[in-house]
Amino acid sequence: MDSISGKSNNQRVFGSEYGQVGSLQLEFISRSFEVDGSVVDALSDVNLKIDSGEFIAITGQSGSGKSTLLNILGLLDSPSSGKYFIGTEDVSRLSSTKKAALRKNKFGFIFQNFNLLDRYTVQQNIELAMAYQHVSKKTLNGLALNLLRQMGLSDKANIKPHQLSGGQAQRVAIARALINSPPIILADEPTGNLDPASAREVMQLLRTLNHKGTTVVMVTHDEVLAEMADRRIFVSGGKITEGTADV
């Protein structure tokens, strides 16, 4: 894998020119679901502040609510109550279109199961993240190929994701998350399906991105990986029990 340091026009995704988006701040966020007629609280009155440029690990047992927390942070899900500020803007009650625009411009998502589309090539999967932006095909191709080169996957551009190893697939997913130069990366168990060597590579990538100014919020149940973050948050029973920020 090439170094992902240094900047050029095509490498802007790794630079600090992401711009500041301010902090992410949750105030008394609750999220409940109805399951078989009864209400289950996935999150209860969560307060959390994440400063720009931080690397945060959210840990907790399965079903503790950490993924729900990440989904709310990434505007993939809406809280049942409470307020969510990005910078000074309350985004908890935005329309779905405005939330989509924020996801498009502010966030990059990395998932445990990669979420790559098998009918598309590796390059097309990466370009998918820019499908809803006004970018010329030439620029888009350049960005995708440059990311693939930096991920050490230049020769994989035209193959389908199912032909990749787990580590390679996750690097493609990371490339997709980075192509729109997001100031915030949200990673849900990014190493969960990887062997230790690939997991280390992915963590190294995230670490490098964070050093370049990207805010990284990572959900993991791996204590060792969590130690690599600047700050750890422990979620249990839908509440933050350690590392709650002052709000």
Binding site: A101, R103, N115, A129
Partner: peptide
């Protein structure tokens, strides 16, 4: 359905 989810994750609106 998953493709729809992925597309929405990367910024597709319902209209898209």
């Amino acid at each position: 359905t998953k493709e729809i989810g992925i597309r929405k994750t990367v910024g597709a609106t319902s209209k898209n």
